[in-house]
Write a protein that binds this DNA or RNA. Structure first.
Length: 589
RNA sequence: GCCCCUGUAGUUCAAUGGAUAGAAUAGCGGUUUCCUAAACCGUAGAUCCAAGUUCGAUUCUUGGCAGGGGUACCA
């Protein structure tokens, strides 16, 4: 509709004022005014040197006379409010009705793919709430791009090597007494995390002892025996010492099993995993080649640097003096490998905003190295999840564990659900499944509705809401719609013929019409929050309709059919929108 | 110091430069012989400060103030 209207408005300006205009921007009419769609005429008034009211009246009259779509219009100040013919909305519902995936564009496999990297954990500790935000954003943004027709390849980089990994390995070796996930009953990633914490405790103890023996703090931090042992272990790892490699494989194996369980519960997945242990050498090689070509330079101590001062950034270290690689070295290698492995044209990194600078540098370096795809790398930068007393710190035990939080949410859902007691006839397994859908729905919606770039405040003492602007609110509406459909029999398949619309019906259809645009905006701005807020608006509007307009109890069968179909379509759209957020919808609740 | 991000009801979030800044939650007051009250309806409550650009600024610019992050041979 918008397009036809835009063209007609351009035509009107040209015919009546001899003025060529850009595509006019239209907006939904504000609730307090009569009309459906509004044109703001102020921008044109300036060029025309005419009174805004006159211009709006003139254009309005032209549209009413020349476009059957426009039934009427009114002018308030410089705002031209257009009233759309109700037939348009009635037909619109008919048109989109048969398509159950309305709004979602099928993936066009002839296009080159987009790669999305997210999660990217370290294999020395379990996932926490920060990872949950990362994972949900990564999954959701992938689904949103797919819904615009873009093929997407989801990936992660697993940071499986380095000194931090050796720390947990060493502590397990020293203090673990052969403990395994099986013997301890702990999830593998939690077990590894336990020893990472153990290392830190021991390290601090040793520092304290050394200081008591007269060392300075700086000396003590460098000389603590357990740290030296960890460094020795890293050297052995790089030399592929069989014993260390075997321990590394064993413990990482435990961690992967644990991660996979968490990913599964969270409902996220990856098409391809990359491992730092397999890409860091390529990164080193590329840096050395860049050095040969004069793109980078070596300092007198042997370290290799990129000079980005011409681009307004600093100098950046690429290889340490001892020749070992740093974080960015590995990222250079990984990026190149991905563009070799897959036929992709662009790449999004879902990584926290603490690494904004890192990605600026990374993209610039890849560009300097001559990769033309470097212009199509994007950093989806999101804000931290903070607790009331500040940042989460794994070593200080102030993290909100991902597995614990999901369990808690499911428990809360269960408690609320049991209190309401609406699930007679459901088996225990069905109930459990439902509690999980609702609990995770609350969690996911809570996180995804917020603009990614904003910091989220999470207060563990206040539980996440299940009422109001929440996932369960939307799921509940979906369940009520399913209930209507179960009772409606074959009404949803019958054709309807109605002449007029209730205002509340019209408002719901207008929102249905806006769904494809919401997906485009969400993709364009890389913000799933747009989908969340859209869905909330739709549901709010539908509930208002549900409350005041009889559906199955409507007197006229034609109206009954129409309203059942409208409900069905709202249900479909909730389901499709929530799919983009990775949230499931229940048949009952 | 320099760089980046964020400041909106008590609280958690919205608002392509457009009309009287929307919701939710907490508060107060209503709605259940009627399709699921995890719902609906009503009420009260906010743009960090100061300039500037504009017909019009929560939005853009500049300067403050506050919070967070970065600026590491950590990742």
């Amino acid at each position: 509709m918008e397009q036809i209207l835009q063209e007609k408005i351009q035509e009107a300006f040209e015919k009546l004022y001899d003025l060529k205009t850009d595509k006019p921007e239209l907006q939904a009419t504000r609730k307090d005014f009569e009309g459906d769609i509004t044109l703001v005429v102020f921008p044109y008034v300036k060029q025309l040197k005419k009174n805004p009211k006159d211009v709006a009246e003139t254009i309005g009259r032209y549209l009413k006379e020349n476009l059957p779509l426009i039934k009427d219009f009114n002018v308030v100040g410089g705002f031209l409010n257009l009233v759309v013919n109700p037939d348009y909305y009635i037909d619109f519902l008919n048109r989109i009705y048969p398509d159950e995936t309305y709004g979602l564009t099928p993936v066009d496999e002839t296009q080159k793919a987009l790669m999305v990297e997210y999660s990217s954990p370290n294999t020395n500790k379990p996932l926490h709430l920060g990872h949950i935000r990362n994972n949900l954003l990564g999954h959701s943004i992938s689904e949103i791009y797919k819904a615009t027709g873009k093929p997407v390849i989801k990936t992660q980089i697993i940071n499986d090597r380095g000194i931090h990994i050796c720390k947990s390995m060493l502590a397990w070796q020293k203090f673990g007494n052969g403990e395994t996930p099986k013997s301890s009953g702990m999830k593998g990633d939690h077990l590894a995390g336990k020893y990472y914490v153990k290392f830190d405790q021991e390290y601090k103890k040793q520092i304290k002892e050394l200081i008591e023996k007269g060392k300075s703090e700086a000396e003590a931090k460098k000389e603590a025996p357990i740290l030296l042992e960890a460094q020795e272990m890293l050297r052995k790892w790089e030399a592929k010492d069989p014993e260390v490699m075997s321990l590394w494989h064993k413990m990482n194996g435990w961690v992967y099993e644990g991660f996979n369980e968490t990913y599964k519960n969270l409902g996220v997945s990856f098409d391809k995993n990359y491992y730092e242990s397999e890409t860091y050498l390529l990164g080193k090689k590329v840096v050395e080649e860049g050095l040969q070509k004069g793109i980078f330079y070596r300092k007198s101590d042997g370290s290799v640097w990129a000079d980005l001062s011409e681009e307004g950034l600093d100098e950046k270290l690429l290889l340490r003096a001892d020749g070992t690689s740093v974080y960015i070295t590995q990222d250079i290698g990984t990026a190149i490998k991905r563009f070799e492995d897959f036929d992709i044209d662009s790449h999004i990194y879902v990584v926290g905003n603490e690494q904004d600078y890192h990605f600026q540098v990374l993209f610039l370096i890849l560009k300097k190295l001559g990769y033309d795809w470097a212009d199509r790398l994007y950093h989806l930068s999101y804000g931290m999840v903070e607790l009331p007393h500040g940042k989460m710190k794994s070593r200080e035990g102030t993290v909100v564990d991902a597995d614990d939080l999901m369990t808690e949410m499911t428990q809360t859902a269960k408690a609320i659900s049991q209190e309401l007691g609406k699930l007679e006839g459901y088996s225990e397994a069905e109930k459990q499944r439902l509690y999980r859908i609702i609990g995770l729905g609350a969690l996911k919606y809570f996180i995804l509705k917020v603009d990614p770039k904003r910091t989220i405040l999470f207060d563990p003492k206040k539980s996440i809401d299940f009422q109001g602007n929440t996932g369960p609110f939307i799921q509940y509406t979906y369940a009520r719609i399913q209930s209507i459909l179960r009772k409606a029999g074959d009404l949803k398949d019958k054709p309807y013929q109605i002449k007029s619309l209730e205002p509340k019906e019209k408002e719901v259809i207008k929102l249905l019409e806006a769904f494809p645009q919401a997906i485009q905006s969400a993709a364009g701005q890389q913000n799933p929050g747009i989908i969340a807020n859209y869905t909330y608006d739709l549901v709010k509007q539908y509930n208002s309709f549900y409350q005041s307009v009889p559906i199955l109890a409507a007197e006229d069968e034609k109206e009954r059919i129409f309203r059942v179909k409208l409900s069905k379509k709202v249900g479909d759209t909730i389901k499709n929108a929530f799919q983009l957020l990775g949230i499931e919808v229940p048949e009952r609740m």
